[in-house]
Amino acid sequence: MRARNMKGRNMAATGLLAASMAVFALPALPAEAQEAHWLHVRVEEPGETRVSMNLPLALVEIGLDMADRHVMQGKGTHWGPEGKVSVADLRRMWTELETVGDADFVEIQDGDTHVHVSRRGDQVLMRIDEGLKTRIRMEMPTAVVQTMLGTEGEGLNLRDAVRELARSGSRDILEVQDGETTVRIWIGASGEAR
């Protein structure tokens, strides 16, 4: 009887130890499991075309690296209606905005068109609506924007931005609905689309 009790206590102690180890191990698991390794793209035009791409992020990095060296060739990237906004300008703007915290950066209402760019926590959010037919949603971690703009130079640091994006874990990046056409871009841990 005493031996059976001892055995029971040992089993209980072992179970408790295993449970404690599992509880302590849990916080470490998500960080490892959540890192994204795949870029997924879906484009659907009902009755017309369906495009599905599942690319390893490491391959995307190589592609961006090649584009940077052979297409951009270190030339600066410019935006704006007349291409007058440089990466340096964007970097300065971002540095100012970073200190602000949560804020609405851009809000434009023009007829049916509504554009809204904001920061909420560690996310930059963009929403564009044109009437009821067009709807664009984009979410990007602030760390990715920071990495993409880098600290110097006239080019975008896309390769490191992809790495930062992968570290941020599985997430939706872009959703576009234009009439019946839908585009969805997201990153995930697995090569299989969810």
């Binding site: 009755g47 075309t49 495009v51 599905s52 791409m53 599942n54 690319l55 390893p56 490491a58 690296d65």
Partner: peptide, 23 residues
Amino acid sequence: DLHRALATLQDTPDGVFVEIEGP
């Protein structure tokens, strides 16, 4: 870059990379 891409693809698990379906 091609060498690196090939090495990456070799290390990647089996799966469909691109699928385009039209009419």
